[in-house]
Amino acid sequence: MSRPTLVKPPASLPHHSRIEDVLQLLPLTDVGPDIFTNARPLWHPPGARGIFGGAAIAQCLSAAQFTIPAQEYTVHSMHCYFVLAGNSEIPILYHVERVRDGRSFITRTVQARQRGRCIFTTTISFMRTGSGGERTVDHATRMPSAEECPPPPTGSETDQDKIYGDDQSPFESVRCAVKSGSKLEPQDKVLRQWIRARGRISDCPPNVREDEILRGQRLNQPGDNHQAHLSALAYMSDSYFVGTVARVHNLMRFANKRNIERTLKSFTGSDEEKQAMREYLERIAEEEAAENEGVQPDDRRIDMMVSLDHSIFFHNPRAFRADEWMLTEMQSPWAGDGRGLVVQRIWARDGTLIATCTQEGCVRLMQEKEIKL
């Protein structure tokens, strides 16, 4: 009988944030070296073909980080491919291969497998801190001004109404208004949102044994847990990513109630879970309707929209906290032949450029003749 984890999920540690619980891995030393598995079931977004892609990205990064000297090396890039849709009802095994350990760079590949089949693969490169030397070439794209994107909520009850993400979600976001009614071409539109992990990510390094934590040893050591912030950023980097292609073309997926009912028809969960899904989809529908107010409706319908590959370039991997507001900016320079490309930049609240991400996805419209992936 299938189950979402190999072992019963461990109890949440009192100092862990929601996203740390979501991304927790367990080493499978009895199975083999450098093999890990998800400690908890993974989220399957409503209407998606499989698990949330950000979970596979982040957990592969976490698995690779277990195999490097954490204080000496930090990730600077990862290049990923989504091979098959992940099944949220089946455990995932993460196999790490130690490709190279150099003096300045370390390379790892990670495969995520279910029932022996690869569903996701990535190559990750780590760089020794400070190995670039004292004299460097420096420049960075500037963060948009407050006129282009208002600051995130400050904490008042009114401001909190603008935040998306309930207590069960590991992160929350605030979308900036999009002037979709303008005459901008799809490739010229820019979509922005503020995003952060919910709660506070602990200062305890992720690879410390739980018995040490429970005895109060090595708890809350400042600066030890930058890896958790990097994994959290990797998780959130997949939020509304390939969907940018649909948004810049004003293609609405759930504003049509028939699409919501069509999605719910295939749902197999409990009545309570189904109602939660309905509310989630209706919330997305409200967002789509507000974003496309005053725009001539587009009668084209999306048949398939899935991620194919995902890359992250970490520019300042130790200069941010993923549980503080970060600004993301997304733009699609090209779409065609049933695919679309999106580029994303992420800044810390102080304007530091944290990362640049790219994603290509399969974006297919309803056709008279069925096309299979």
Score class of each variant (00 low, 15 high):
Thr5Arg: 03
Lys8Gln: 13
Pro9Ser: 10
Ala11Phe: 12
Ile19Cys: 01
Pro27Phe: 02
Arg49Cys: 00
Ala55Gly: 07
Gln65Met: 08
Gln65Phe: 09
Thr67Lys: 07
Ala85Gln: 07
Asn87Tyr: 00
Glu89Met: 00
Glu97Val: 14
Val99His: 13
Arg100Asn: 12
Thr109Met: 09
Thr122Arg: 04
Met127Ser: 08
Arg128Ser: 03
Ser131Tyr: 06
His139Asp: 15
Arg142Pro: 01
Met143Cys: 04
Met143Phe: 14
Ala146Cys: 02
Cys176Ala: 09
Val178Glu: 13
Lys183Thr: 15
Glu185Cys: 06
Arg192Cys: 04
Arg198Trp: 05
Gly199Gln: 12
Ile201Cys: 04
Pro206Leu: 04
Arg218Thr: 03
Leu219Ile: 13
Gly223Leu: 13
Asp224Gln: 12
Asp224Asn: 10
Tyr235Phe: 15
Met236Ser: 05
Ser239Met: 05
Arg247Ile: 07
Leu251Met: 01
Ile260Ala: 05
Glu261Asn: 15
Lys265Ser: 15
Gly269Asn: 15
Tyr280Phe: 10
Leu281Trp: 12
Ala289Gln: 11
Asn292Tyr: 07
Val295Arg: 06
Val295Ser: 05
Met304Asp: 01
Phe313His: 02
His315Glu: 08
Trp325Asp: 06
Thr328His: 13
Trp334Met: 01
Trp334Glu: 02
Ala348Met: 03
Ala348Gly: 12
Arg364Asn: 11
